[in-house]
Design a binder for these strands. Structure first.
Length: 973
RNA sequence: GCGCGAGUGGCGAAAUGGCAGACGCGCUGGCUUCAGGUGCCAGUGCCCGCAAGGGCGUGCGGGUUCAAGUCCCGCCUCGCGCACCA
């Protein structure tokens, strides 16, 4: 390309004896020229099978070519600038994409931007500019920085989640969720049971009377039929079943951020994941998504996708499915307590009960302590009411951190209630204690101190009896397997059964007696979906005079963000628990109140002033890459089937389908990756996509880590200026002062950030790519070491020198046939590199390319027949250099679509091999032998070897193990 | 406490149960050079030895095997995640 003209002339440059030396300056000319060429030619335009998107030559996808969809977790355009750690994953996916393209796949790889959300809003607040302007500027900067890396993306498929065209479909999907309900019994396309169905089908069933009207809803009379309900009551019935619904429920309110948050965004310490502000439980009217309806499928399908076990177990853990039984205990005085237990077999061992401090049973307690109340139970209070209200106040004031720090020491108090064990008739005192959580199960437990560690600790503190029901199970962790004891009476005899059998027997008895039933509970809660922020997608919802939500028709999408005088969130003192959210969108009265004709004439409606959480945009972006300009469907079904459908490309028939490779950090394990799976499954249920999972294979890349240094005041000092100093007490010094070394993230504030720009200036983009890919396995974190980068540059320089004369720019390759040794090494390398690349072991693939190149360096002239395959194999990792060499070798087309070299099996078979001679497993000699040598020949050679004889030292030979032709092991008697 | 992962030269790392340390950095020596933050060549796990050669060596302790970094059992250390979830 232009490098051919640019390099030799070097107009105005100082005379240089080696104008064609592969320096950073030459690398830059080559790289920029090829980046322009790829853009002009549309080299990386991925062809769809139909529609406007074709490849660079204007062709549609060839149906006989496998499709391969590779994706990065898309970046957040923060404006802080990149450091060398950021592009690691993008380089990795680029290498895979380029390799697969050369392997004959139709590859889809593009990069969009996740641009709504808190940082952009905060950055905008700081600079005083509108978030749209600052966000778009940041995107432009980031695109420029990433382009300089030579990533082979299809630029036509890029987008940002803030684009009105994109927001429109995000809102459209929200309405699909809103207009759906979950039918547990419906059969799915993939044969399973339970799926989302359109709300109008629910209405039809209610009208027909094939589905009963649910009871217990506000404004819906008990026992009423559909026909008896008025229009508003009917809407309440339907609204109660929607997958996206407004409800007044306890939510996480974060005054410091001025918004409510999802459970997934709150740390175990009860603080906001972003900003680390305290979070309070408050009952507020908010949007929720019924992700709990998908709890089983989200758990079960983890077994059908190719994800790291770590992420799958994190999701399983988060969903927290456990099987067990509900058991109802009568309470003296007429009330009832229902508990959930995973161990119904231990019912005989229940000696007391515990309800959480928020449990409704505590709203009324007996007026006096019953007979048998022990001193230790009352905490010195004269009445149950006093004791309970004191404990409730104590528990409400305890933070999550305090509770956890205290987990071993149980607090609580007797409530005065006595419950009756339905199986034994025993009277059980009911306690309240904050180790029982209202948010899990029923908020009440039957305590079995003989089998449960926590119950045991409580029983000890409160002098309660302990009964063991499983042989060998004490107060320690329960094994769940053992022989049941102490568990028989006139109703049920469990003694001698295994735990699993006893569980079954008790559950059956409970169901027979009508005092309990088998059930499954989940830790997962519905997804709190509204935020009180400006920079997010507005809800496509208005409210009428009944204050019930109404979906806007698709023709009114997108609902754009209104201009407001101040878009910063209304925040409060972080500990002001009594404050209430104030959505910034409410500041524009003209926007909030809108006159619309939604079919019954023009009326004034009130808009929803919340915005969606920034996870919304990343829940479906994989689909937008397929069909980036689609106006009439979220994605063309034919395109979705082609790129993501079950059995497409290299995926097995009967797979879930989904993106072929999704690369990103592990930090999204239970946020984005769970939400995206949920949305995708809703779209699957409604027939919009054929894949039942969005991401078939997930790969977590490691992080690039770096050393940081602090001085004696714990202030970070510039890491590049720190020197190793044996004289310093810490071994390191900065400007003569000792500094302390720590190891972790790279970042501006740690003064240890190395930027891609610095690497381009010093070495070039290809060198940076090669270095990052050689550092180690992709899924491992590794320390950045600027000093080592030069090794990758030397490799590329040596290759360049093997092809191009540094002084004259002439082509140096020999047209003669390569020697047998060169040919064999070449084909061995092709075979190994192909395998390594296929398994994403780029580091070892590069090592083998270096070996081949080092071999070519030893020859007078490298033969073209070896150089060309080497250049092609290097292309995925160092694409600019490879393109330049490929062109200089006389090719006029880009090598991006050239077939990856194929190894000749005949040349992989060695004629002679080195046979290792061992005595008792220790190497004592080696000998060159024909690859066809027989066991007998090898045995004879081994026994004749001087080293073997010396090691045997006259001992008899017991046996000889031969693994022809590579190894002989002589075993002495 | 539970779950997942990892421990190999001075450093980053390689090794279908079969030559431990490929490749790279760094370091040592030599050649090239007016000069090198250049290039090329050689060496580089530890110990004994002039050498030939030998001994030791993959976190620790056992075991299986002709043969173990790799498989099995029991520990230790570190990282990450979850954590009173009934």
């Amino acid at each position: 390309m232009s490098a051919q003209t640019a390099a030799p002339s070097a107009a105005g440059a100082a005379p240089d004896e080696t104008p064609f030396r592969y320096t950073a300056a030459l690398a830059e000319r080559i790289e920029l020229a090829w980046q322009d060429a790829w853009a002009e030619r549309g080299t990386f335009h991925a062809a769809n099978p139909t529609g406007p998107l074709t490849d660079g030559d204007g062709r549609h996808a060839d149906p006989s070519q496998p499709s391969f969809f590779v994706m990065d977790m898309f970046p957040y355009p923060s404006g802080a600038g990149l450091h060398v750690g950021h592009p690691l994953g993008y380089i990795a996916t680029d290498v895979v994409a380029r390799f697969r393209r050369m392997q004959g796949d139709n590859v889809l790889h593009a990069l969009g931007f996740d641009a709504f959300g808190l940082p952009a809003e905060q950055f905008a607040v700081q600079t005083g500019a509108h978030p749209r302007g600052t966000t778009e500027a940041n995107i432009a900067i980031m695109q420029r920085q990433l382009r300089r890396l030579g990533l082979a993306h299809d630029p036509r498929r890029s987008f940002a989640t803030i684009d009105p065209d994109y927001v429109r479909w995000t809102q459209w999907i929200f309405l699909q969720v809103f207009d759906s309900w979950y039918d547990e019994d419906a059969v799915r396309a993939d044969g399973g049971r339970g799926r989302a169905r359109p709300v109008h089908e629910l209405v039809a069933e209610l009208e027909a009377g094939t589905r009963p009207v649910p009871t217990g809803l506000e404004g819906v009379p008990a026992g009423a039929t559909w026909a008896e309900l008025d229009a508003v009551a009917r809407r309440r019935v339907v609204d109660s079943r929607r997958l996206a619904y407004v409800s007044e429920t306890p939510v996480n309110w974060c005054p410091g951020l001025g918004t409510v948050l999802a459970n997934e965004e709150v740390t175990s310490e009860g603080r906001s994941e972003r900003g680390n502000f305290p979070v309070f439980q408050r009952s507020l009217r908010q949007w929720n998504m019924r992700i709990t309806a998908y709890a089983d499928r989200l758990t079960d399908d983890l077994d059908r996708i190719d994800w790291p076990e770590k992420v799958r177990s994190m999701q399983r853990n988060w969903i927290g499915r456990s099987h067990g039984a509900r058991v109802r205990f009568g309470v003296v005085g007429g009330a009832e307590v229902e508990v959930f237990t995973t161990r119904p077999d231990t019912l005989f061992g229940a000696t007391f009960m515990v309800v959480s401090p928020e449990h409704p049973l505590l709203d009324e307690v007996p007026v006096a302590w019953p007979d048998g109340t022990r001193g230790a139970w009352t905490d010195g209070h004269a009445t149950p009411a006093e004791a309970v209200s004191a404990y409730r106040a104590f528990a409400a004031g305890r933070t999550a951190v305090e509770r956890q720090a205290d987990a071993g020491r149980k607090t609580g108090v007797f409530t005065g209630h006595l419950a009756t064990n339905p199986l034994t008739g025993a009277a059980l005192p009911v306690f309240t204690a904050d180790y029982v959580l209202m948010g899990y199960g029923t908020g009440a437990i039957m305590a079995v101190p003989g089998g449960d560690e926590r119950d045991h600790a409580f029983a000890e503190a409160f002098e309660l009896p302990v009964v063991h029901t499983v042989a060998g199970e004490g107060g320690g962790p329960r094994t769940g397997d053992g022989e049941v004891i102490n568990s028989s009476n006139e109703h049920l005899a469990l003694d001698g059964l295994r735990v699993a059998e006893a569980k079954e027997a008790v559950t059956a008895w409970l169901e027979r007696e009508g005092v309990g039933e088998r059930t499954t509970t989940y830790r997962l809660r519905d997804w709190l979906f509204s935020r009180q922020r400006y920079w997010g997608e507005p809800f496509p919802i208005v409210y009428d005079e009944h204050d019930l939500p109404i979906a806007l028709p698709a023709s009114l999408l997108p609902v754009d963000l209104p201009e407001v005088p101040d878009y910063s969130p209304r925040t409060f003192a972080p500990d002001d628990a009594d404050s209430s959210p104030e959505p910034p969108l409410g500041r524009n009265e003209d926007w909030v109140h809108v006159t619309l004709d939604l079919g019954d004439g023009p009326k004034v409606y009130r808009r929803d002033t919340n915005t969606m959480p920034n996870w919304a945009g990343s829940c479906w972006y994989h689909l937008r890459y397929l069909d980036p300009r689609s106006d009439d469907a979220v994605v063309d079904p034919a395109l979705e089937r082609y790129w993501m459908g079950p059995g497409h490309g290299h995926q097995a028939e009967g797979s879930t389908g989904g993106v072929d490779l999704y690369v990103g950090g592990v930090e999204h394990a239970v946020l984005h990756l769970l939400y995206a799976r949920f949305w995708h499954k809703v779209l699957f249920d409604l027939g919009h996509v054929s894949s039942s999972e969005p991401y078939h294979r997930l790969f977590n890349q490691g992080y690039i880590q770096a050393e940081a240094f602090t001085d004696e005041r714990d202030v970070y000092v510039p890491a590049v200026e720190v020197v190793e100093d044996p004289g310093a007490p810490t071994g390191w010094s900065w400007k003569g002062r000792p500094v302390h070394r720590e190891y972790g993230k790279m970042g501006k504030s740690l003064k240890n950030a190395v930027t891609p720009d610095e690497m381009y200036a010093e070495y070039g983009a290809d060198t940076l790519r090669v270095y990052e890919m050689s550092m180690g396995p992709l899924d491992q974190s590794r320390p950045w070491d600027t000093r080592s980068v030069v090794g990758s540059q030397r490799f590329l320089q040596r290759l360049w020198r093997n092809v191009v004369d540094e002084t004259t720019g002439e082509l140096l390759v020999s047209e003669d046939a390569p020697s047998d040794a060169t040919l064999r090494l070449l084909h061995r390398t092709i075979a190994d590199v192909t395998e390594d690349m296929g398994a994403m072991r780029v580091n070892t693939a590069i090592a083998k390319l270096i070996v081949l190149n080092n071999h070519l360096t030893t020859l007078d002239r490298a033969p073209r027949a070896a150089v060309e395959p080497l250049v092609l194999m290097l292309a995925p990792v160092a694409p600019h250099l490879a393109e330049e060499l490929w062109q200089r070798l006389g090719h006029d087309r880009s090598l991006a679509h050239e077939p990856f070299p194929a190894a000749d099996p005949a040349l992989l078979v060695e004629e002679t091999v080195t046979c290792v001679l061992q005595v008792q497993g220790k190497v004592r000699g080696r000998v060159e032998v024909p690859a066809t040598a027989s066991d007998e020949e090898l045995t004879a050679l081994a026994l004749a070897d001087a080293g073997v004889q010396r090691a045997l030292a006259g001992r008899d030979v017991r046996t000889v193990v031969v693994r022809a032709p590579k190894l002989v092991n002589v075993v002495p008697a």
